[in-house]
């Protein structure tokens, strides 16, 4: 009886969110789905095009490559930050906390332009390299995949820190002591005990980063300079610049399906509460 009314209360509290999701996402999603099979003519033609069009294919391959790279670099960096955050001295912990929190306060646009200021031909890095005589010609650091990977990694690191830190916090300190007592060196303990025992956090973080990265739009648009188009930007181009709504919609639906599959995998490794750290 009690449990029932408890469930009812929870349902009532969740209702506004569910309603908002239905109105703001559910209905438009159905609309997009409809476009993908009706424009310009009814049928699965757009999905066929998606599987055969070399341009679309190359964008999907590039997106996968960038996302994979970003996942590896962001998770590695997040692992180091989480390690300091969880196991560092009080001063190091505070520093790590700022590293994690400050990026959240700066808009994605500002951060992307910040990287342009650093990486462009007239940017800080290239100016310094030439001023010191290390290089004659500027290094191509932006308007290419490198710039995109740097910007996206920077944006996604904080999201990867939380699941990793959560796994590190859950680790029983005595297990590490036991390994030491059994004669293991610090390197050995890190690689054969600490990393495997925090693997759930690593996998969770990797999935979060990969899923987020798949739908990235602003950062690749600015730092890729139109040369490293990713899937989200392709959708934008198809819908706003060439009136090819059907293909744009089909790409969107495919992206949503991939993200859905990955999210399902994510929930197998992590309970949602773990992501909040």
């Amino acid at each position: 009886m009690f449990a029932r009314s408890h469930n009812l209360g929870a349902a009532l509290l969740l209702a506004p969110l569910l309603l908002l999701l239905a109105l703001a996402y559910g209905i438009p999603f159905l609309g997009v789905m409809k476009w993908s099979v009706t424009l310009p003519e009814p049928g699965l033609g757009q999905y066929h095009a998606l599987l055969t069009d070399p341009l679309v294919q190359s964008v999907f391959v590039r997106t996968a490559r960038i996302c994979a790279l970003v996942t590896v670099t962001a998770v590695a960096a997040a692992y180091a930050i989480a390690y300091v955050w969880v196991r560092g001295t009080p001063g190091q912990r505070l520093a790590a906390e700022y590293c994690i929190l400050v990026p959240f306060w700066i808009s994605v646009l500002t951060r992307a332009f910040g990287w342009v200021a650093l990486l462009s031909n007239q940017g800080l890095i290239n100016t310094w390299l030439r001023a010191t005589g290390i290089l004659d010609e500027p290094l191509a650091l932006v308007r290419n995949e490198f710039g995109v990977v740097v910007g996206m990694t920077h944006f996604l690191i904080p999201f990867a820190v939380f699941p990793i830190a959560s796994a590190m916090r859950a680790l029983d300190e005595r297990v590490l002591l036991a390994a030491r007592g059994l004669g293991a060196s610090r390197t050995r303990i890190f690689w054969s005990i600490f990393v495997p025992m925090t693997m759930s956090g690593i996998i969770g973080a990797a999935l979060i980063v990969f899923v987020f990265a798949l739908g990235f739009f602003i950062t690749p648009a600015i730092l890729g300079g139109g040369r490293s188009v990713m899937v989200a930007e392709l959708v934008y181009l198809r819908i706003f610049q060439s009136p090819d709504w059907g293909l744009g919609a089909a790409i969107s639906i495919t992206l949503v399906l991939i993200v859905g599959l990955l999210t399902t995998a994510l929930f197998r490794f992590l309970r949602p509460s773990q992501m909040a750290g």
Binding site: D172, V175, L177, A178, A179, G181, L182
Partner: peptide, 17 residues
């Protein structure tokens, strides 16, 4: 500790899960 080579059994065992 790692150079002393004493065996240790912890409260709660501390096995590698």
């Amino acid at each position: 500790a790692e150079r002393r080579s004493s065996g240790m059994v912890f409260q709660g065992y501390a096995l590698f899960p």
